[in-house]
């Protein structure tokens, strides 16, 4: 899903829509991430103002969670499960080969993820939000190539 370009007014509206929930910060960040694919530094004062938090607090939270990126993501994101159950089925070797094979693909961010809950069907991955399991090099390549 293509993300919108950063827009402070739209961000303020997104934040405002969530601001009245108790403990709203994570939902707010998810909503911004959903819209823009990232949560830039420019969002921090907007969030802080709306939730009556300090900028430092918001920054501390954003930087804590792996999900929140502060820069726009490349068009594709491949999350490879690197946890034990997938390791046990050759996940590490496959990850190493994949990283090497896709090293020059600037359009794909390859991230480690620790468990997708597909532990009896490893190795597993998530590509652009879609799950894939029982992977091998061919299947993984096919999935990535299908997206262009």
């Amino acid at each position: 899903m293509p993300f919108a370009h950063w827009n402070a007014d739209r961000a303020a509206a997104i934040v405002a829509a969530q601001a009245n929930r108790e403990g709203a910060l994570l939902p707010v960040l998810h909503a911004l991430d959903h819209a823009f694919g990232h949560v830039p530094d420019a969002a921090v004062p907007i969030i802080a103002q709306a939730l009556n938090l300090s900028r430092a607090e918001v920054h501390g939270v954003i930087s804590f969670y792996h999900d929140f990126k502060t820069t726009p993501p490349p068009p594709h994101v491949l999350k490879l499960c690197r946890a034990e159950a997938c390791q046990a089925r050759g996940g590490e070797a496959m990850a190493a080969r994949t990283l090497a094979r896709l090293a020059d693909r600037a359009d794909i961010a390859i991230e480690a993820v620790y468990c997708l809950g597909l532990c009896a069907s490893g190795p597993a991955a998530m590509f652009d939000g879609r799950l894939a399991a029982r992977l091998d090099d061919d299947r993984l390549t096919a999935i990535v190539e299908a997206a262009g």
Partner: peptide
């Protein structure tokens, strides 16, 4: 005004953003 930014070994005291 301060927070701990990042986590784990990367945790560091961070003023503001």
């Amino acid at each position: 005004a301060l927070t701990i930014a990042g986590r784990g070994f990367g945790s560091k005291v961070s003023p503001g953003q």
